[in-house]
Structures are given as structure tokens and as C-alpha cells.
């Protein structure tokens, strides 16, 4: 049995396989309408999420399967003090596969150790969010046509932004990739992520506090939200939340073929006027996410058409 806890649980070849299946689903969704007939996905969301949960549920429904679950800890037995291990042991008897989001880092790994069915990490605190990375990778594949020789700018909260860490891990495996890290001093990329996935692999990188100065060098601009829920201190959040706002003015400094990605939800870090720019692909990114989740569910359940 396989789980997806960290994006590195999948080899480059397995990622290619998932992308090929997602491409095929995009081409002919009808072919996949009954692949998961009589299978059940449990979505255990201990932390609120609209996009990820709905994306998982839509993915399973589009494969002909069914879904059950909860969307916040207060509506589950966790509110009564039940451990993750116990919940998972029980839900393993109700579902064929589990997608889990938890505010505490490492909770999906605990779940994987007690589950009798595959576990998908749908986000654990500020740690990993591998299925967002799958969405990001399919977006890059479709919008840029390649994974190698790309200059990727990551902007905003690089400290707590788990999607940023996972994307760096995944993209650091491709040749000719360069990272541009754009953040305020307080939200810089954690040193271990930088060391392990950038410095140790001798990947060129630039660190900047100014988006304007570097935007013209990028093939991809990955924007992130400064997340209130990751701060223990309200004052720090208020001080940093408006650090970088992407406007149509800033977009004029960017290349014609640069793409703008965002894991969403956005608050105000991308002005809505940018939405009409063909280079803005964050809404398409969410659809790619659903396709990759469909491909992933099939892979973990070992189902083929």
C-alpha cells in the first residue's frame, strides 16, 4: 500500500505517469467516469479548506466514486479528544482511501502508520501540501511545456508557505532550474529547505526583498498569501500581510511569456485587475489540481482504465 505524505514519495517517473493520466483525463473525461465505482474517499479535514476538500470530492465523484468526511475538527470526534490514530483506524473500515488535512505537522504520517487504506496528505500545518504541488506541476507542464531550464520566482511567505517548500523540492530535481526567492526578512525560506534542496544540489538562486527588481527575469512567478493562521502574534501578521501586491503595473515589467501561479485562496496579494491578463493562470491551476487528484486516487487504489 502506498501513501502520499511528501511530494518526494513520488519518483520523477511516477510524476510523469500521473501527468500522462491527467492529460488523458483532460482529453477524454468520459472514459474515467466509472473507474472508482463502489469506492469511497474519506475527506478528513481538521482545518477548514474550501478548495482542496472540494477538489478531492469533485475528483472522486468524477471517477464514479463516493465521498464522506468532515470539514472541521469541531464536527469530528477530535473535539472530544480522540487521537488521529484512533480516528484513522476507524475510518479505515469505512473508506477505501483517505485524504487528510490537519493543522499539526506530521499528522498525516501518524495517520499512515495506523491506516489500513492509503493516506493522502492534503496539507499538514506549514509543512507539506503535496497535492497542491501536483496541481502546480501539471500547470507548469501545460503552460510552459517543460520542467527544466526554468527560472522560478517564489514570492511572499516563504517561511510558512508549505506549497513553496514542496514546489522547491519537486522542481529541484530538474536540470537547469533557478530559484528567485522574494520575501520580507521575517518570512524568508527556512534555512534547512534552502540548504537541502537548493544549496546542496548546487542550484543557482537569488534572494531579494524587491519583486520589481527581479520580476523581469522570471519564467514563472509563484505568488503566496501571508497566512494569518500561521502566526502566533497578530501584530506580526498585520505588519507583513501587505508586503507584496502584484498589480497590472508590476506585470508590465514581466516577460510576455511569464506565468503567474498562486495556490489560492488569495486575499489581496494579486490585484483582481491582473486576472484578465492571459499570463495569470491561477484559476486554471485549480482545474489542473482536480485532474491530478483524480490521477493520484487511481494510482493509490491501483486502478486503471
Amino acid at each position: 500500500m502506498r501513501n502520499l505524505i511528501n511530494i518526494l514519495d513520488l519518483s520523477v517517473e511516477e510524476l510523469d505517469e500521473l501527468i500522462a493520466v491527467a492529460d488523458d483525463i483532460l482529453e477524454d473525461p468520459d472514459k474515467y467516469r466509472e473507474v472508482c465505482k463502489s469506492k469511497i474517499l474519506a475527506t478528513l479535514f481538521y482545518e477548514p479548506s474550501t478548495r482542496t476538500r472540494l477538489s478531492f470530492e469533485s475528483a472522486m465523484l468524477s471517477l464514479g466514486g463516493q465521498v464522506l468526511g468532515f470539514s472541521e475538527a469541531s464536527s469530528s470526534s477530535a473535539a472530544k479528544g480522540e487521537s488521529v490514530a484512533d480516528t484513522i483506524a476507524i475510518v479505515s473500515g469505512y473508506a477505501d482511501i483517505i485524504a487528510m488535512r490537519h493543522p499539526k505537522e506530521g499528522a498525516p504520517l501518524v495517520a499512515a502508520r495506523h491506516a489500513r487504506v492509503p493516506i493522502i496528505n492534503a496539507g499538514d500545518g506549514g509543512h507539506y501540501h503535496p497535492t497542491q504541488t501536483l496541481a502546480d506541476l501539471l500547470t507548469i507542464h501545460h503552460e510552459k511545456g517543460r520542467f527544466d531550464h526554468l527560472t522560478i520566482g517564489l514570492c511572499g511567505d516563504l517561511k510558512f508557505g508549505r506549497t513553496v517548500h514542496s514546489l522547491i523540492e519537486a522542481m529541484s530535481r530538474y536540470e537547469g532550474v533557478k530559484f528567485v526567492l522574494i520575501s520580507p526578512e521575517e518570512l524568508k525560506l527556512p534555512s534547512f529547505v534552502k540548504q537541502e534542496y537548493i544549496k546542496d544540489k548546487k542550484i543557482p538562486y537569488v534572494q531579494s526583498t524587491s519583486l520589481d527588481e527581479v520580476i523581469g527575469t522570471l519564467d514563472i512567478l509563484y505568488m503566496t498569501r501571508v497566512q494569518k493562521e500561521r502566526f502566533f502574534n497578530e501584530e506580526d501578521y498585520v505588519r507583513l500581510k501587505d508586503s507584496y501586491i502584484l498589480t497590472t503595473e508590476k506585470m508590465k515589467l514581466a516577460r510576455e511569456d511569464m506565468i503567474v501561479m498562486h495556490p489560492l485562496p488569495r486575499v489581496n496579494e494579486i490585484s483582481t485587475a491582473v486576472d484578465d491578463d492571459p499570463r495569470a493562470c491561477y484559476f486554471r491551476q485549480t482545474y489542473y489540481g482536480k485532474l491530478m487528484r483524480m490521477a493520484l486516487i487511481m494510482k493509490l487504489l491501483d486502478l486503471k482504465v
Binding site: 490514530a85 493543522p103 499539526k104 506530521g106 501518524v110 509543512h127
Partner: peptide
């Protein structure tokens, strides 16, 4: 020691 780690809330792990 990470306050965000699951081991800080679930002591049995």
C-alpha cells in the same frame, strides 16, 4: 520542540 508538531498535542505518539 516544534509547537506545530503533532507530537506536542498527542502525547502517546
Amino acid at each position: 520542540k516544534n509547537p506545530r508538531c503533532i507530537t506536542t498535542v498527542e502525547q502517546e505518539i
